[in-house]
């Protein structure tokens, strides 16, 4: 009898839990109709299940008491991805982009880099051993009197056969750079370069780079920088490194 009730229990449990095959299920239902012992066990099983269902409330209330004791996790505000949020985020990104553009544009523009790296030469030192009372000498006098146009006019009159021709080209090129006449400065420095005058070679390397920067020819600037960087003893070696670093700056992309 005990064994049969154990078997009943297992069969009932499988039936109630739905783990029976279709055939086993049919067989169980047939037995249930014909077997009073099985019926009795089945009723007791269902009543027990119902009894358990009725006292789960106590367990839920116990769980709720436990939950009530827990401190809620501080709320982390997550912005809902509404159209408004997207629009705000896009606005902020645009603003950041615009500010980066402005910063990059202002601090790393060609003109700004030129201004940072260009140093006006001292005309007195250039004058040094140059012949006096020449056209060149008059031009320098005019420069010292801040008569820039007059000086430029006098420099342009220095002839090729004048021994002050190369220095006149050099000063003229600087005046052109200072007057924002970049293309003319490039031309003048190149003319001086053609003279192969060692006194001006290293200066021309550097100031030609700046003249190209002035006109926005970055590839030519790079070329000049590379020429300078081939010689660690070049007087403008550090300046060239600095300029290259600034030209490759992240901010130049804006």
């Amino acid at each position: 009898m005990l064994m049969s009730k154990e078997i009943y229990f297992d069969r009932i449990e499988s039936y109630v839990e739905g783990t029976n095959s279709a055939e086993e299920k049919r067989e169980f239902e047939n037995d249930l109709e014909e077997n009073p012992d099985l019926q009795e066990e089945y009723q007791a099983y269902l009543a027990t299940k119902k009894a358990i269902d009725e006292f789960v409330k106590e367990e839920i209330l116990a769980k709720l008491d436990e939950i009530a004791q827990r401190k809620p996790v501080p709320e982390v505000k997550v912005l809902g991805l509404t159209r408004r949020t997207w629009a705000m985020a896009a606005g902020v990104l645009i603003l950041i982009g615009a500010l980066m553009f402005l910063y990059g544009h202002q601090e790393y523009s060609d003109d700004r880099l030129f201004a940072k790296q260009y140093e006006r030469p001292s005309w007195d030192s250039n004058r040094g051993d140059q012949p006096t009372n020449s056209t060149y000498d008059k031009a320098i006098s005019s420069l010292q009197n801040n008569e820039v146009e007059e000086a430029a006019d006098q420099l342009s009159k220095v002839g090729r056969d004048d021994e002050a021709y190369n220095v006149a080209l050099y000063v003229m090129a600087h005046l052109q750079l200072q007057a924002d006449a970049g293309e003319e400065a490039v031309e003048t420095f190149n003319a001086l370069k053609q003279q192969n005058d060692k006194r001006y070679q290293e200066n021309v390397d550097w100031f030609l780079a700046l003249a190209y920067l002035k006109v926005g020819e970055e590839s030519m600037v790079d070329q000049q920088i590379n020429t300078i960087l081939q010689n660690e003893q070049h007087p403008y070696y550090q300046d060239a490194l600095t300029l290259r670093s600034r030209l490759q700056s992240f901010w130049r992309r804006f």
């Binding site: 009723q43 007791a44 009543a47 027990t48 119902k50 009894a51 358990i52 009725e54």
Partner: peptide, 20 residues
């Protein structure tokens, strides 16, 4: 546990009727 509870409930046929 289930069987123990079931045995207790079986001792009270009226309770089975009520529950069902």
């Amino acid at each position: 546990c289930f069987k123990a509870l079931m045995n207790k409930i079986k001792e009270q046929p009226d309770l089975i009727k009520e529950l069902l």
